[in-house]
Write a protein that binds this DNA or RNA. Structure first.
Length: 270
DNA sequence: TGCGATGTTATCAT
DNA sequence: GATGATAACATCGC
């Protein structure tokens, strides 16, 4: 569920809480060992112990803690959450716990256990998987245009490909394509330049708007103490099957494209 | 009761 | 290389 705006929201929430804390250890709960992607939980714990958190930031949908001599990273996948408290010491769904020298903790909670935790000395493993940042200065209209020309994928699966552009997921891709009047199955090198321009603007604008509203909560997304994202009320197509299009009143269609549920208007998205 | 769908992504087969 | 299916898992709703 969490896409770029939700990940950014989590980071902004955690920054003041975690600034300059020193990690004592990483605890491994419920024997969910698949969750630890780079090393065993013991090895990660040994690597991070005694290190102070220098910075909390984001690369695509990865949450990265810069430590003194390495990086601890998290990926929330569908249902992961980073929370600072749990009720009644109830460890259900808690896959890991970072325990700090001030006796506070950060819990990784994930009821589907798709989320991942890893430790690395070098960011190259993440950079290999994650492409251009849509809110970074490298992402310009001419570069976007050029990259789209090089590819022959359908635009929707291409925008979901994190190594092509990072941070977009199913919700925001549908929203961006609706706003720029593009059919999700258009081949990327066939896009008209005016549509590319609109798509570029939509990506940047929608992500910024969603961040300012703390992301979108459909079912699961929460940050901190049960806070939810408020962008849901501004969604124009996502989860609006059979409801009237806000532009042309035609009923929104739902189809599957690359096994992903896709909402669009077949009149104004061509 | 049972089945299919759910916002993600790495991996494997074709 | 591109594309598609699958697995990882729990819950909800029809």
């Amino acid at each position: 569920m969490p896409e770029l705006p939700e990940v950014e929201t989590v980071i902004r929430y955690l920054q003041p809480y975690l600034a300059s804390k020193t990690i004592l250890k990483l605890l491994h709960h419920n024997d969910y060992s698949n969750v630890f992607s780079s090393h065993s939980p013991k090895e990660i714990s040994r690597s991070v112990q005694g290190q102070t958190i220098q910075k909390i930031w984001r690369r695509g949908k990865y949450i990265v803690f810069t430590l003194e001599c390495g990086y601890l990273y998290f990926h929330l996948r569908m249902t992961g959450q980073l929370v600072t408290t749990i009720e009644n010491q109830n460890h259900k769904y808690i896959t890991a716990e970072l325990f700090f020298s001030d006796k506070t903790s950060l819990y990784f909670k994930d009821y589907r256990k798709f989320g991942r935790i890893g430790y690395t000395q070098s960011l190259s493993c993440i950079n290999q998987l994650v492409g251009v940042e849509p809110l970074g200065s490298w992402f310009t209209m001419p570069r976007f245009q050029k990259e789209l020309k090089k590819r022959k994928w359908q635009i929707k699966p291409l925008l979901l490909d994190q190594s092509f552009i990072c941070g977009l997921g199913n919700i925001y891709v549908d929203e961006c394509l609706w706003r720029s009047c593009i059919h999700p199955q258009t081949t990327s090198n066939k896009l008209q330049s005016k549509n590319v321009e609109m798509l570029y603007q939509s990506i940047v604008t929608i992500l910024r708007e969603a961040i300012s509203l703390n992301g979108t909560t459909i079912i699961n997304f929460q940050y901190g103490e049960n806070n939810v994202g408020n962008f849901k009320q501004f969604l124009k197509v996502y989860a609006r099957e059979r409801l009237p299009c806000f532009r042309c009143k035609n009923k929104i269609k739902k189809v599957f494209i690359g096994q992903r549920g896709t909402y669009f208007c077949n009149i104004c998205q061509r």
